[in-house]
């Protein structure tokens, strides 16, 4: 049977509309699930960096304390000092801490790649000191007297213990089993216990 053009339109258009609607719902649902999952990870990172900033600010000069932090697994903590040439735009002009969506736990990441990640997806907070340092000396690495130091910390566990030491114009941070400091490959804080 040959149908007229009008008949075909009347028959098929509602079906097409329905199909489009159903597909839209599925795509929208998938998007919601994906974005809510992504948001959760972003929220964790944001909460972590806010908490770290708050604890740094709460310390007075010459004071140090150790805190437990809920981190964002698969993200990396790094820092930039005032005099650094290459910093994320968000950090310009001051010492800065950043958590960036790049997994550097157990991996060696280049400064450039971390900078790119921080620029694109990182959460940064300016700190009112010139130098903010993270020394990350992985346990058991390096040679005595010449520890191999990373200036970032990739998070592979949910909870981390960080000791924060505030001295004039400088902040040092030490992880539970590792020394973490920002931006100084040679300066290990005293008592940090390098490898």
């Amino acid at each position: 049977m040959i149908k007229g053009k009008r008949g075909w339109i009347r028959e098929e258009v509602p079906r097409i509309i329905l199909a489009v609607l159903v597909v839209s719902i599925i795509i929208y649902g998938a998007y919601l699930l994906y974005s809510s999952y992504g948001n959760q990870e972003n929220q964790k990172a944001k909460t972590f960096i806010d908490s770290l900033e708050g604890k740094i600010n709460a310390l007075e000069d010459g004071e140090n304390n150790e805190f437990t932090f809920r981190t964002a697994k698969g993200w990396t903590l790094t820092s930039y000092s005032k005099q650094d040439a290459n910093v994320p735009d968000k950090c310009f002009g001051k010492g800065c801490i950043c958590i960036c969506n790049m997994d550097c736990s157990g991996l060696s990441c280049s400064k450039e790649s971390i900078l790119d990640s921080c620029q694109a997806t990182g959460y940064c907070r300016k700190i009112n000191v010139d130098n903010v340092k993270v020394y990350n000396i992985p346990f058991g690495s390096g040679v005595i007297g010449k520890p191999f130091i990373y200036s970032y910390k990739g998070f592979s566990t949910e909870l981390e213990r960080i000791s924060i030491n505030k001295v004039i114009k400088e902040i040092n941070m030490t992880f539970h089993s590792e020394v973490v400091s920002f931006n100084r490959y040679q300066d290990v804080p005293s008592g940090a216990g390098g490898v």
Binding site: D50, S51, L52, E53, G54, K55, I56, N57, A58, N65, F67, T68
Partner: peptide, 8 residues
């Protein structure tokens, strides 16, 4: 509580 410094 120092443990919650910077937290909401």
């Amino acid at each position: 509580c120092e443990q919650f410094a910077g937290e909401e």
